[in-house]
């Protein structure tokens, strides 16, 4: 499957493991429940390990484990569920997470600008057929007023 990563279309090399599925070789992501249950085994996984979070998960509890993951997948079950925008910002701004943060779920062209500002850098689009045209979404706006992950000072301090 193709995804967008760092504003480019790339082939995805991660496998999202269901909680029931057998461990597999290669890069895998697991749910928080599975991580909590099997973290000792998972910590020895040879390839990349990623964590999937939903907006209902207790983000603060996974902070001590962040170094174990090279990918964190944030779930957007519906376009309108904005909880994980806050998760992304906290992961970047407060908890200093430097790995890949990926948005998964109902992801459209129209959220890319906001998501990027919040520190998300890869995207599994809801409609992979239109992935090409979605790239334009990153450039919807050239500026933003706020302090964001990408722009650590507000517009007035940078430019005015």
């Amino acid at each position: 499957m193709q995804i967008i990563k760092d504003k480019e279309i790339v082939e995805d090399n991660w496998l999202h493991l269901d909680d029931e599925a057998e461990l597999a070789a290669g890069n895998i992501t697991v749910s928080l429940a599975r991580w909590q249950e099997q973290h000792e085994t998972l910590a020895n996984h040879e390839s990349g390990l990623g964590l999937r979070l939903t907006g209902a998960d207790p983000l603060e509890e996974v902070v001590p484990d962040l170094d174990s993951f090279s990918l964190i997948v944030l779930d957007f079950p519906a376009f309108t569920d904005g909880r994980c925008y806050s998760f992304a910002r906290l992961l970047r701004d407060r908890f200093g997470y430097k790995g890949e943060i990926r948005a998964q779920g109902d992801i459209l062209h129209d959220q890319l600008f906001y998501m990027t500002q919040c520190g998300i850098n890869s995207f599994e689009m809801a409609n992979p057929n239109r992935i090409e045209s979605a790239l334009a979404g990153f450039d919807d706006f050239t500026e933003s007023y706020q302090t964001t992950v990408l722009k650590p000072a507000p517009l007035y301090r940078r430019n005015r």
Partner: peptide
């Protein structure tokens, strides 16, 4: 200005 296109709070 702060609230316009605030990236974190568009889907409250």
């Amino acid at each position: 200005q702060w609230s316009t296109f605030h990236p974190e709070f568009a889907y409250l």
